[in-house]
Amino acid sequence: MTAAPVMSAESLARHYEVGGGFLRKPQVLKAVQNVDFQLYAGKTLAVVGESGCGKSTLARMVTMIEEPTAGTLTLDGEPVLPDRWASLRKSVQIVFQDPYGSLNPRQRIGQILMEPLIINRPDMPTSEREARARDMLGLVGLRPEHFDRYPHMFSGGQRQRIAIARALMLDPKVLVLDEPVSALDLSIQSSILNLLIDLQERLGLAYLFISHDLSVVRHVADEVIVMYLGRAVERGTKDEVFGGPRHPYTKALLSATPIADPEARKDRIKLVGELPSPLNVPAGCPFSPRCWKVQDHCRTTAPELEGESHKAACFFPEG
């Protein structure tokens, strides 16, 4: 990875104030804390973690829907600040998890695809807009006659193709995929994933792939970040993380992946306790109450993400 990153984030954080009413002090929810990453053209960075760990908040910051509380986000060497969002937005687009909620039910497919162009290139002639939308329809594997239909006439997989097509209409550099296949049938998941890989090769896109499904991540990722309670606990290339997980949480997560072989030996690591409330993150290492290797040191001091290329935030890493 010698090329300059398309997008990079440095100690990105997002805190919410919750509760808080009249004369009551709001509590601070730290949804994302100190996350660093770089996205490279043609490469996929996967973010994994269980629900509530801040994956989607990260996606919302990267797509400029929410402003980071702290940290910097750089796109193509330019800092991403709210007053520049309007001009930078074209370069970062998103595909959502639920293909049933992400398409406007009152718009035809053609309108859905042309809308980003109408907004961002108002001087483009209508005929060219339509030609581009039809080309895009072919690129994602849909037929030209789908152009004049409404979203309710399509299956989940086809809708997700439409959502991908819409995201690509503005020629973005970065595509954020927020659990793009979790809502789909297993048989359709693979076709969508192959489409995404295919598009990445053809268009040189950088993907930020958010998922909780490790087998999907193993299929598409180049680099992996494992998140727990808003913090990155492990980071490395796909082979490093899947081959030799260093953080106990990653190890437990990997051991929980179902294997399609009833004969295979299962040695799942069962975590004790519940996921702590993100409003009340334990002092020290956030994973300490559920970790089987915990020492007194873990409960008082939070470990930093350390290591060369394969980093883990743990005082007693595996392997």
Partner: peptide, 17 residues
């Protein structure tokens, strides 16, 4: 709350639109 509104926002749609 629905995603299609968010994606219109990501596509650059302003408030009146």
């Amino acid at each position: 709350q629905k995603d299609y509104v968010t994606s219109a926002k990501v596509a650059g749609a302003r408030l009146p639109r």
